[in-house]
Amino acid sequence: MLTVTSLSRAFGGVYATKDVSVTVPEGELRGVIGPNGAGKSTLFNLIGGHLRANAGSIEFGGARVDRLPVHRRARLGIAIVFQGARLFPEMSVLENVMVGANAATRAGAVAAALRLPSQRNEERGIRQRAFAALGRVGLAAWAERDAEALPLGQQRRLQVARALMGEPRLLLLDEPASGLRAAEREDLSELITELHREGMTIMLIEHDVSMVMRLADKITVLDLGEVIAEGTPAEIRRNQRVIDAYLGGEAAHADAE
């Protein structure tokens, strides 16, 4: 599904991502962990097209995508939930989610201005799916509110709902659980598990290592922009390099559970 080959990206001479190769087969839930500044978000931004690589290639669904602009990659099925909340503050919660459908629909400005029947049909479909997506993340009661007014936890949910509207084949989740309360984390884990069961390919960046260990099929560990380990949660927990560089106490803690 996704094949990243020797991907590098530098900021002012310092590599944020250096010679990273990752292959994620269809339907896998891949955890991505690493200390702060390891280059995790940079990797996602490269895959999503928000950053251009200095070297290397990205293949998605059998075709090179690294030269495509962001919206084209979104149309191919790459969706991203950003680390910070990037909402559309002037729009309602429902409208925010409806924007997500732009990646999977087509009616243009002219069809809209003339309110052609095809366009109105599509609108109805988008609206229904948006309500369903909001229900799925537990925000249905907030549909008509200003997105601006949402508390952080709800903003996260909103971003997830928006990403789902594009009918993604690859969902990139960048620390979706940070800032959430324990109960909200539990709900989020459940949703991720459910999407995974439905066959969606997911990459999950998360500092809560025990959560990643629980959810992921395989884990990629980054440090200083490089992949230092890759394997099943059990393998990662035992990997000496990972323990030295990053896990330390956290792995011991996860084992104790």
């Binding site: 990659r73 149309r75 503050p89 997500g100 509207m165």
Partner: peptide
């Protein structure tokens, strides 16, 4: 609101 979020929504 956000060009990057709009773009990744397919805009």
């Amino acid at each position: 609101g956000s060009e990057s979020a709009a773009a990744s929504s397919g805009v």
